[in-house]
Design a protein around this nucleic acid. Sequence first.
DNA 1: TTGAATGCAAAGTGTTTGCACGTGC
DNA 2: GCACGTGCAAACACTTTGCATTCAA
Lengths: 141, 141
Amino acid sequence: MSDLLERLRTRGWRLTPQRRVIAEVLAGEHVHLTAEEIHARAQTKLPETGLATVYNTLNELVSLREILEVSTGEGPKRYDPNVRRPHQHLLCIRCAELRDVYPAEAPTLPASEQHGYEVLDAQITFRGLCPECRKQSPASS
Amino acid sequence: MSDLLERLRTRGWRLTPQRRVIAEVLAGEHVHLTAEEIHARAQTKLPETGLATVYNTLNELVSLREILEVSTGEGPKRYDPNVRRPHQHLLCIRCAELRDVYPAEAPTLPASEQHGYEVLDAQITFRGLCPECRKQSPASS
DNA sequence: TTGAATGCAAAGTGTTTGCACGTGC
DNA sequence: GCACGTGCAAACACTTTGCATTCAA
């Protein structure tokens, strides 16, 4: 589970209580949270945790490539602790829940469509309605 | 080209000079612009054009499904006038240029990975370096 | 001990909104 | 004529930054 903390320690990361709690929140969740949500959960464990520290820490973890920053196109970014296993995302367009999916193949862009770009990766987001939101109103976009 | 204006007129859209100019800017460009860029171009044609009006108009066109709003994950949103032909995007991670690509297949999510969602569509963004940015510094992320 | 991390509040972006004025139909 | 569009500035949501203080190593 949270070998995240292990890895960070061996990489010489300065381990403060706030950082530990933030890393725990990330590792303990299976849905991808926003900075505010991470802050709220962190504060229940350690009240003296500022929102700015949460942002600072998240940005640092992104730079260290220990988490992924995911923008849903609407509202705040979400942070994905699952960097080890390549995956794609499934987004609820109503409630913005974001979860991982593991489909078969990653698409590639034919050379004829690369237009001189050096293509590094492809990011896929499936969009739809989560089970909860389907109940409330099955259709309409 | 700009049958966009045709369609809007027949849909009973109130056609002001500002709206005409904004629609022309959208139709005339092959790269996807930000609201600021659209505003700047619109002002060269019609100086009395406010940024708020640009945002209002773009949002309205999005609701009318005459343009697409595309978030690049970093920085401002971009607006894609190409709503007729299904396509995907190629994004430069350095300069944020965004262009359309037309690869073969749209991926589908196997039922076993749908987790109770009603999947509506899939959005693919290929990420890489555009020709210009490759010149300046071919690698490093 | 000391450089790095923290909380807070202020600043920064990108976007939306309230309101008085102007205008397409 | 009048409902709707406009420009402007203020408000807004999210994120970053400056600075004095605290603390992990």
